[in-house]
Amino acid sequence: MKVIPTKIPDVLLVEPEIFTDERGFFMETWRRGALAEHGIDVEFVQDNHSRSVAGALRGLHYQIRQPQGKLVRVTLGEVFDVAVDLRKSSRTFGQWVGALLSAEDARALWIPPGFCHGFYVTSGPADVHYKCTDFYAPEYDRCILWNDSELAIEWPLSGRPLISDRDRGATPFAAAQCFA
């Protein structure tokens, strides 16, 4: 496994080694010891799987209590995956990083607790799987406006994105609850 830093040092791209032959492929998608060598020494307690249509945009979601670290990968299609640092004590507070993740390249994005997360589907349907370090807690669930001008996320939109009512009515970044 190869771990690649992003412009926000705590957010990492994880690139598996893929073994292919005439039968197909094999890859190891997660191994605690291998990732622990790169500072990702966590216990995952929940796995999630979403399917989204082309042009769907989900996010920016987080939990203000029971914050979730997420290891995100795509098993069908392609998405532009985004993490925004919500840790006020961090030198990268309010900054975002984005990465294309696809079933073809099999890369994953490690997003530690203290970040919000969202993605935009850049292909036909996309299946996104993510391992979480804490359980979903709806009472702590929060959402920041995906197109907030202060964040200025450069989404690779092709047309108007498909957004849920909840995400459309999300909180602006300036008014969002953040982490210490």
Rank of each mutant, 00 (worst) to 15 (best):
I4L: 15
T6M: 08
T6S: 11
T6E: 01
V14W: 01
F19N: 06
G24V: 12
G24F: 13
F25K: 13
M27W: 09
E28W: 02
E28H: 04
R31A: 10
R31P: 00
R32F: 07
G33I: 12
A34W: 10
L35V: 04
L35H: 11
A36Y: 13
E37I: 00
D41F: 11
F44K: 06
Q46A: 13
D47R: 08
R51M: 14
S52E: 09
S52V: 10
A54Q: 10
G55W: 05
A56E: 11
A56N: 06
L57K: 03
L57D: 06
Q63H: 09
I64Q: 09
P67S: 11
G69Q: 02
L71Q: 02
L71S: 05
R73N: 02
R73E: 02
V74Y: 03
G77N: 00
E78T: 14
E78Q: 13
V79N: 00
V79D: 02
F80H: 12
F80M: 07
D81A: 00
V84Y: 06
D85P: 02
D85Q: 05
R87C: 07
S90A: 13
F93Q: 01
W96L: 06
V97R: 01
V97K: 03
G98S: 11
G98D: 04
L101R: 05
R107M: 13
A108R: 01
L109Y: 03
W110Y: 14
G114Q: 06
G114E: 08
H117M: 09
